[in-house]
Design a protein around this nucleic acid. Structure first.
Length: 265
DNA sequence: CTCCAGGGCAGCG
DNA sequence: CGCTGCCATGGA
């Protein structure tokens, strides 16, 4: 399978997904209760799924209907040295179309936390409450009903004070099962406002959920890393408006490059 | 030991 | 409004 503008290693390291696991031969992805194995580094990839599964699930998940060449051209026309370097380092990043509920819980966990611990907590929640996944030893991400909220404070999950936020979110979604469906139909501004009403969701988490769970690519999450990088490289301000609906994709290139720079030192 | 991690909340003024 | 201290947890 030929996939342009795609590097599994870059996506896995971009901090948007927490269930891409590095295997000897590639990456194992658990999403929507299914498993996908991607082998090799492109542009010709070997995928474990059938053509039918690709068409009805994974092509959409990997955001095949977005033209990343257009984003590339936009960056070139912007003419900014730093952003161009970030793009060169992370040009294989795509914004995955992940499950909304999974993103809500995952980014509730993410607050004042680091990627290693987030990954561990998410995997522990799946191990405890998720269902079996065909072809994998790992388990699916649990629904609001599957999660035993009374056990969320167990030390094994390492959730700390975030356990209460997740418990409240589970209880709310159980009481209002259409909440997620309504969110999915809203435009960015409305979805963001609705998310901000929920306990534990502030501006940054709301934007991550909008970007990664609702694919509102105009969302531009500002976390501690992005705040630092903006101050360092763009002290006079960064014009997200130039990228219009693609600001969130730009944010991912900036974020990824900043993370890699930090790792080198 | 302190500082930090894909922050947000409550309690101030 | 904006600002500040605090919130669990574990790794550096």
């Amino acid at each position: 399978m030929i996939i342009d503008h795609f590097s599994p290693a870059m996506v896995a390291g971009s901090g948007q997904c927490f269930r891409w696991k590095r295997m000897d031969c590639g990456y194992e992805i658990i999403a929507f209760g299914k498993r996908l194995l991607i082998e090799n580094e492109g542009p010709d990839f070997a995928l474990s799924c059938t053509e039918e599964e690709w068409d009805e699930c994974w092509a959409h998940y990997l955001d095949m209907d977005t033209d990343y060449g257009q984003v590339e051209a936009l960056i070139a026309s912007f003419g900014d040295r730093h952003l161009s370097e970030c793009y060169a380092a992370g040009s294989g990043i795509r914004i995955l179309r992940q499950d909304l509920w999974e993103m809500i819980v995952t980014f509730l966990i993410s607050q004042n936390n680091n990627i290693t611990r987030i990954t561990r907590s998410v995997e522990a929640l799946c191990d405890a409450f998720g269902g079996e996944v065909e072809g994998s030893e790992r388990r699916s991400f649990p629904s609001a009903c599957d999660i035993d909220t009374g056990r969320l404070t167990d030390k094994s999950f390492g959730l700390g004070y975030r356990a209460e936020y997740i418990a409240k979110m589970c209880e709310y979604v159980r009481s209002d099962p259409d909440f997620l469906l309504r969110l999915a139909k809203m435009a960015y501004d409305a979805a963001r406002e609705a998310l901000l009403q929920m306990k534990g969701i502030g501006p940054k988490v709301a934007d991550c959920i909008c970007l990664f769970g609702l694919h509102h690519t105009e969302a531009f999450p500002v976390d501690t890393h992005v705040k630092q990088l903006l101050a360092k490289y763009y002290p006079d301000g960064f014009d997200t408006g130039y990228f219009a609906g693609y600001a969130g994709i730009i944010q991912q290139y900036l974020f990824y490059a900043e993370l890699r720079n930090a790792k080198k030192r």
